[in-house]
Computed example of a mutant assay.
Amino acid sequence: MNDESTIQHETLTRRDALKYGTTAVGGGLFAGCSELVGQDEDERTGSSGTGTYSVTMSPAGEITLEQPPENVLTILPHHADMALAAGHGDAVSSMLYNPEYNDTIWNKFLERLPGVSVDWADLPGTWDPDKELLYELDSDLHLADPAYMTNMQSWTREDIAEIGENVAPWFGNTLSNANKEPPEEWADQYEYYTLWEIFEKVAQVFGAEERYTALTAVRSSLLERIDERRPSTAERPSTAVIQPFQGSFWVYHLNEPGFLYSHTRPLGAIDAFADALGDSGQIGGQVDYETLLEQDPDVLLVTGMMGQSGIEEVRNTLTDDPVGRQLTAVETDRVYAGGVRNQGPILNLFQLEMTAKQLYPDVFGEWPTYTDGPYPEIPVEEQLFDRQEVAAIITGDR
């Protein structure tokens, strides 16, 4: 990688409004809580332009702003989903991980939210970019986990600090997806959050606390309905989250900490591979057909299939295999297109509803047979949350 540390770039007026502390990124300690200095959205974004507010989240530390960012870089889609939920989807102007794929998946869900969509397919960005690309993108905010950036081969902590100082601050948390161990140089300052705790902080960055509060109320109501009606433990199905891979399968945890599981953990189904995977810190493991049959889950959730084609091919592959066709889930037609793991709050609402219906159809209503296309239309009386309400919260029409 070329060393761009000596390049001098003009500071733009827009960035003058994004003053930030780089305590954590620079290697020191960080505050452990969020603190809003400004009192409300009007004060922060008013015509005077003098209101300031600060938000703190591990591992980046505290950032202080005078107005919400208008030009945001993301890596994974959970942060982009949060910006959208905060009413600032248009601020997402670059994405380092597969924007075309994420655009396709998200719009398949957003089809059910009137007036809400994303336009990510042609966003600039590439995995493991050169530093110069981030200079060229000239973002107001890097809505990304700086510790996660060091997973990329070309990036060091010094590079991250340079971009944070010369371009824009970092602000994001990704390793909370499975409470993964951070790189050694970040270990003393890394804190884990739930999906909705991260969203709360991102909403504060965008001055969208009211949207956060309203969407949290929708989620709380959904979870209450699940808790009230969910069958007892003895009546819950054994379940495996799988992904086909070269004639075998990756299997993943179901109920572990982290936002990868925020659409399955609240349902409390029996994890068919909990003992086999153990607590090694790995998010999953590889198994063959015979091992899958040994556990013989009642339900198979094929991860990442919702919103794209391929689930029929998986079903046919299982049926055509002499071992696979013996699986209980295959015999009872309970092989479902599973959800997106790196989800944000919007997809989390849909995927909680979807998983509830897949696991407990007798309680929450049958999940429609799905092959491809948008999130299925669910009769209003069988919906677990109000689409119109969620759309109105996001668009500001509520």
Rank of each mutant, 00 (worst) to 15 (best):
S154W: 09
F30R: 13
E185M: 02
A83E: 07
V167L: 03
D81V: 07
P266F: 02
E66P: 02
L260Y: 14
L12A: 01
S176M: 10
G32E: 12
P345H: 00
E377R: 12
G281K: 10
P77C: 06
D321I: 00
V251S: 07
E100M: 09
S280Y: 00
D130G: 10
F245Q: 10
S117L: 09
V363G: 12
L384N: 08
E290P: 13
N316V: 02
K108F: 00
G164W: 02
F171L: 04
L222H: 04
L96I: 06
A356G: 14
V167N: 09
E158N: 10
Q282K: 14
R157F: 03
R341W: 13
V241K: 07
N173S: 15
G247W: 05
E312H: 09
I63G: 05
A24R: 00
I394V: 06
D103L: 06
T213S: 15
G304N: 03
V340M: 15
E4S: 08
S139R: 09
R44K: 08
F109Y: 15
A83Q: 01
L292R: 06
S221Q: 14
M152P: 07
V116I: 08
L65K: 02
G46K: 10
T22E: 08
Y289P: 08
E70I: 05
Q204V: 11
S58H: 10
Q153F: 14
E235F: 02
M95V: 06
G49C: 11
I75E: 15
F30E: 11
R315V: 00
E41T: 08
I270T: 13
A214W: 09
T156M: 11
E35L: 06
L301C: 01
Y193E: 10
V72W: 00
Q308G: 06
R225F: 02
G324L: 04
L84A: 11
F249V: 03
M354S: 15
M95Y: 03
Y193N: 07
M149S: 10
T216E: 13
L292C: 08
R14N: 02
H79C: 13
R325D: 01
I394N: 05
G207S: 04
C33Y: 14
G28K: 09
K201Q: 14
G281C: 12
F259S: 08
I346Y: 01
S47F: 12
A269I: 00
Q383A: 15
D138A: 04
V363S: 12
M57A: 05
R225S: 14
V363C: 11
E132L: 14
T317M: 12
D140G: 03
D16V: 00
R211K: 09
T11Y: 04
H78A: 05
T45A: 14
L110A: 01
L12Y: 05
T22I: 05
N179R: 10
F385G: 12
T52P: 00
S48T: 12
A217T: 05
V330G: 01
Y135V: 12
Y212I: 01
S220E: 15
M305L: 09
R230W: 01
R157D: 10
G284E: 04
